[in-house]
Computed example of a mutant assay.
Amino acid sequence: MDWKLLESEYLYRVEPWLTLRRDKCETPNGTIVDPYFVLEYPDWVNALAITADGKAILVKQYRHALGKTLLEIPGGVMDKTDADPEVAVKRELLEETGYAFPEVYHLGAVSHNPSTSTNLTHMFLAVGGKKVQEQELDENEEIELVLTDVEEVEKLLRDNRFMQSLHVSCIFFALQKYRSLQSLS
């Protein structure tokens, strides 16, 4: 079922935020698909982060495309200097929240739209967080921390209060992992 890539042309490049590519492909039955547009992004990371005293760290920030301030989990883009997704998520957590986490569990990766985008989002559960510094936000970031009980996160998830689908996926898997860790202790 795999397609054969015949040609590829970059139409627009503003790395790392938006790279648009036009491909010409051939399907197994010989059909030529032209144009097929692909968005290239670097991989992303996110985490349900839980402090040493059992509080989940949520973030509130304005999301311009929707024109709304949303409740989310911390995360962001993998930098080229990040050795792997775990390094990236620890960096993002420290920058956005000021908390460092001794334990992070990789929960897998998901694609926000595999038909048009090349990247994955690596999902994590981070536990045992302690505040070690103030936030180090990018110039266009304004992030408010919201510390809450894990049970409240579960309620917010059930009530469909998280808009970002990649965050919903992470929260779902992270809560399962968190509960399994609790049952072991």
Rank of each mutant, 00 (worst) to 15 (best):
D2G: 06
D2Y: 13
D2Q: 13
W3M: 11
L6C: 07
L6M: 14
E9N: 11
E9Y: 05
Y10H: 01
Y10M: 10
L11Q: 13
Y12R: 11
V14P: 00
W17L: 13
W17I: 08
T19L: 11
R21P: 00
R22N: 07
D23C: 11
K24F: 01
K24H: 02
T27I: 01
N29E: 15
N29K: 09
T31P: 00
V33A: 09
V33L: 15
V33E: 10
P35K: 08
Y36F: 13
Y36W: 14
F37P: 00
L39I: 15
P42Y: 08
D43H: 14
D43Q: 07
W44M: 09
W44Q: 13
A47W: 04
L48N: 04
L48Q: 03
A49T: 03
A49R: 03
I50N: 02
T51K: 09
T51D: 12
A52G: 02
I57S: 01
I57H: 02
K60L: 08
K60Y: 04
R63L: 12
H64T: 00
H64R: 12
A65E: 15
A65Q: 13
L66S: 14
G67K: 11
L70F: 04
L71N: 02
E72M: 11
E72L: 08
D79K: 14
K80Y: 10
K80F: 08
K80Q: 12
K80T: 12
D82M: 06
P85W: 11
E86G: 13
A88I: 06
A88W: 11
V89T: 03
K90A: 06
L94Y: 12
L94M: 13
G98E: 05
Y99T: 02
F101M: 04
E103C: 06
V104A: 15
Y105P: 00
Y105T: 13
H106F: 11
H106C: 05
L107Q: 08
G108Q: 10
G108R: 08
A109V: 01
A109G: 09
S111E: 14
S111G: 08
T116N: 09
S117Y: 11
N119V: 01
T121K: 10
M123I: 03
F124M: 11
A126D: 10
V127I: 15
G128Q: 05
K131P: 07
E134V: 00
E136L: 13
D138M: 12
D138R: 14
N140K: 10
E141R: 06
E142G: 01
E142C: 02
E142K: 03
V146A: 01
V146L: 05
T148N: 05
V150N: 08
V153Y: 02
E154C: 05
L157G: 05
R161N: 07
R161L: 07
M163K: 12
S165V: 07
S165A: 09
S165Y: 09
V168W: 03
S169L: 06
S169H: 14
C170K: 04
I171L: 04
F172D: 08
F173G: 01
Q176I: 07
Y178N: 03
S180G: 00
L181T: 02
Q182H: 07
Q182V: 06
S183R: 14
S183D: 12
S185I: 04
